[in-house]
Design a protein around this nucleic acid. Structure first.
Length: 580
RNA sequence: GUGCCUGUAGCUCAGUUGGAUAGAGCGUUUCCCUCCGAAGGAAAAGGUCGUGCGUUCAAAUCGCAUCAGGCACACCA
């Protein structure tokens, strides 16, 4: 990266200057104390280093230090200038043109860091209950999680994506009971969900079980005849399982449509059935961190930083949700992953301490578990926030995608920092295309493709009917793609410095984005690159009579197209159309 | 009451382990297509970085306090 190159030059020069005692009283320099930054004012240069922090040891003024360092720098065709305590750096043509060559050589792999220590990562996200359709919040985790997986893989890790199905517990009974009511309604009985608020909480009154009820009736004509349409005679477990499977199918289909591809769906139920939960409880008991109180078994999680102890086995002998979750995380670790990354909604933040506590109590390293807490999504309709909840007529993720499309939904869901509450303005995302950043970026890609098409197409004058030959023959164009050298880019460098620097930035964005798990920086980057490209396009003609210049600019356009495509399609899973 | 997240332009948000004149999009105003996609570009206006103290050469960034909003505080899942 250019910034690394620059820092290396500065540090090497500084060490030489120190050795020659030219930096006041400074006698040693530890690499890494100087930081490269972006000058606020681009006129100063492309990158800068502030040496002021050395002043207290050198006992001379920062400008003197800066000048001393620059004396020792090997400049090549790059520019170095000193303003105050800053050493500014302006990349020369060599660096810039070879960057374009690098994009051509690496293509799909442009920006992939080298020498990454590959970790085997289990990324768990969404993990919804199979009791209903996804709501909008799930969409955020689905989009972010799948893109994070793409990013981490590209970065060089091995990523296994898993969805934990919460298919155990009382909620499944609730689901079965709710389906029973819907079936009875379909069979013509005059029944409905309880109107009492507290009673109603034992049911899922959403409309979504109506089609499930219809399907159940179609599939079970014999059974219904046998019981004379008396639904109460049907085993409730049968209804629960039926509804659960239907919901799971719906969820899985939606995920695929949303370009989210899990490697595994892990059923909580199988965890209980396999005895792993019980095994886990026994191990915890053996560790001596369990005590009895009020007839329940308590885990002393407060010994590991939790603010209070937690029940692991209820007085009635059944396990809590936490118990299964502990067993699940232990199972993940035993499957040999180096790192577990979970995306959880912020409403689950209370669970972080207790799960980590249990991991530690069972002899594993809690630092292996990394939990990304995401703030929730608010839906904004007509400028008003609509609280999301599991209630009737809620807007489902499915509805949202129908209205807005997969591309826009994915982009909007991940364009904000995970720490901030996301306001999803449905009107804005669906009606107002020009306020939609995803269109802006896609437009840049389509425009780049269009220029590349025009470069090899003959032109027809609609008035005279005359044809002018293509600016470049297909062979000339292919030659650029197959054997572009840095020298060929040189004619375009002066008018494209900002664009090339922005392309270069992609390498750094990939690195920091992957290391901090913040995919939204890629959404921002892609908008910035699009803006630079639009600006470049308006200021410079790509297809011109100067063939060398044209080829150089074609190479740039191709580079932009490639980087946009890689970021959109391969990481964000947003389509990069060639025409719009 | 306790814990976590947030507070930056009229609105939505950036601000890279503290650095030069705090940035972008939308909205407002003014320009730019006989020529590669105007779904675009160039420019202007718009700020006490919630507030107050502190740390230091330097604070939107770090610490403390405080105000405001969100989320969570189960032998539910």
């Amino acid at each position: 990266m250019i910034k690394d190159y620059f820092l290396n030059e500065i540090e090497a020069a500084l060490l030489k200057a120190v050795a020659d005692k030219k930096v006041g009283e400074l006698t040693e320099y530890k690499k890494g104390t100087l930081l490269v930054e972006r000058p606020k004012n681009p006129d100063f240069g492309d990158y800068a280093v502030n040496v002021s922090s050395l002043a207290r040891y050198a006992k001379i003024a920062p400008p003197q230090i800066a000048n001393a360092i620059v004396e020792y720098v090997s400049k090549d065709d790059n520019e170095y200038s000193v303003i105050g305590g800053f050493i500014n750096f302006k990349a020369g043509h060599k660096i810039l043109s070879s960057l374009v060559e690098e994009i051509f050589k690496t293509n799909k792999n442009f920006g992939k860091p080298e020498n990454v220590k590959c970790e085997k990562i289990l990324l768990e996200y969404v993990s919804a209950n199979p009791t209903g359709p996804f709501h909008i919040g799930h969409g955020r985790w689905a989009a972010m999680g799948s893109s994070l997986a793409n990013l981490l893989k590209f970065y060089g890790h091995e990523v296994y994506q898993e969805f934990y199905i919460n298919d155990a517990g009382s909620q499944i009974q609730k689901l079965g009971n709710s389906l029973a009511i819907r079936i009875r309604q379909e069979l013509g009985e005059n029944v409905d969900f309880p109107t009492d608020e507290i009673e109603r909480k034992n049911y899922y009154p959403g409309d979504y079980l109506i089609p499930v009820a219809k399907k159940f009736i179609d599939d079970n004509i014999e059974l219904l005849t046998r019981v004379h349409n008396d639904v109460s005679k049907i085993d409730i477990q049968l209804l629960s399982d039926f509804a659960k499977e239907e919901m799971e199918e719906l969820q899985m289909a939606l995920l695929e449509n949303f370009r989210v591809h899990f490697d595994n769906f892990y059923s909580e139920l199988t965890l209980h059935k396999s005895g792993k939960v019980e095994e886990c409880v026994n191990k915890l008991k053996a560790s001596g961190k369990i005590y009895q109180k009020d007839g329940a078994d308590w885990f002393k999680s407060s010994d590991y930083g939790d603010d209070q102890d937690r029940v692991i086995k209820k007085a009635d002998g059944s396990n809590t949700y936490l118990t299964a979750d502990i067993a699940y995380h232990i199972d993940k670790l035993e499957r040999g992953f180096d790192r577990l990354i979970n995306i959880w909604g912020a409403d689950h933040h209370g669970y972080v301490a207790r799960v980590k506590a249990a991991i530690e109590a069972l002899g594993h390293d809690p630092a292996k578990l990394e939990i990304l807490l995401g703030q929730l999504v608010n839906l904004v309709i007509n400028g008003e926030e609509v609280r999301m909840g599991k209630r009737k007529n809620m807007v489902t993720l499915d509805d949202l995608i129908d209205e807005v499309g997969v591309d826009a939904t994915r982009f909007w869901m991940q364009m904000r920092n995970i720490d901030t509450t996301l306001d999803f303005d449905i009107e804005l995302a669906k009606t107002n295309t020009d306020e939609n950043p995803v269109f802006y970026v896609q437009y840049a890609h389509a425009r780049a493709c269009s220029i590349l098409r025009n470069a090899v197409s003959e032109k027809l004058n609609t008035e005279t009917g005359e044809k002018t030959p293509a600016p470049l023959s297909q062979k000339e164009f292919d030659d650029i793609l197959t054997s572009l050298s840095a020298d060929m880019v040189l004619p375009a460098v002066d008018t494209a410095r900002r664009l090339i620097l922005k392309l270069e930035e992609y390498k750094n964005i990939i690195k920091t984005s992957a290391e901090t798990r913040q995919v939204y920086t890629i959404c921002r980057y892609v908008q910035e690159l699009a803006a630079e490209f639009h600006s470049f396009y308006n200021a410079n003609r790509v297809i011109t009579d100067d063939k060398a210049l044209m080829k150089a600019r074609i190479a740039l356009v191709w580079s932009v197209k490639t980087v946009l495509y890689n970021a959109l399609e391969d990481i964000l899973a947003v389509s990069a159309p060639e025409r719009m």
